[in-house]
């Protein structure tokens, strides 16, 4: 009884907050409702006995993905009035197309019939006596290892892409070389100079520290850019 009650409570909050994600006026509120929706989805997972999935949902989606969403939404100043303007204008056309599509789908799905095997195949084959976390692990890392690795490659490509398209190192930025700093002793930096009374530092000829500055370790890209210019210049 309590489980059923909890299910309806969580499901209701989930649906309402999902609705609010779309309809909230303030985009930050939308993201917060999204987080609430994630939470309730996690609670539903818990009720279904998939505690591992529930926790992962919270850790990954709420703890990491939604934080980035929130970042972006807070940083962008989205003018919703402007967006809605277009919405009003295209509403009739969009609604018509939507209704037509829906009608077609209803017609098509009139012949809705699941394959006889579908119900039995719906669940991944489970092994008795294994904890559901262990079973997930077996599915992901043993049965679907190929797909797991492929998705790893996809993420790697996404990362390379993000770096390629956005990283701009001007080559002028100075980097800290921790090893160099640690290796530096007083003898390398300190020079004892006999300063005559009444003479300024400039007159003695010390304007800069005597130690050679660490070379600005320019990134490989910056190097390319410069070299590219030089190359182009020859032609």
């Amino acid at each position: 009884m309590i489980a059923a009650l909890a299910f309806y409570v969580f499901a209701a909050i989930l649906l309402v907050s999902a609705g609010m994600v779309v309809s909230a006026r303030n985009p930050v509120h939308s993201v917060l409702f999204l987080i609430l929706a994630f939470f309730n989805a996690a609670a539903l997972f818990l009720l279904a006995g998939a505690e591992f999935l529930a926790m992962i949902l919270v850790i990954v989606y709420v703890g990491a993905v939604a934080v980035l969403f929130l970042f972006v939404v807070m940083m962008l100043d989205i003018n919703f009035a402007q967006l809605r303007e277009g919405f009003q204008r295209y509403l009739p056309v969009g609604a018509t197309i939507g209704v037509v599509l829906l009608a077609e789908l209803v017609v098509v799905l009139g012949g809705w019939r699941f394959a006889p095997e579908a119900t039995s195949l719906r669940f991944a084959p489970t092994q008795a006596g294994l904890h559901n976390t262990a079973q997930l692990g077996r599915l992901i890392y043993t049965d679907y290892i190929l797909l797991f690795q492929a998705s790893g490659l996809i993420l790697l490509v996404a990362m390379i892409g993000a770096i390629v398209l956005t990283l701009r190192d001007k080559g002028a930025s100075r980097r800290q070389s921790i090893a160099r700093q640690v290796a530096r002793g007083p003898a390398d930096t300190l020079v004892m100079v006999d300063v005559r009374s009444g003479a300024g530092v400039g007159e003695i000829g010390i304007l800069r520290p005597l130690v050679d500055e660490p070379e600005p370790a320019g990134d490989a890209h910056a190097g390319h850019d410069h070299a590219g210019h030089g190359h182009g210049g020859h032609h």
Partner: peptide
Amino acid sequence: NVGVLYLFAISSL
């Protein structure tokens, strides 16, 4: 059963 994940989830919140 998933106490560690629970802790991790809460701390990430």
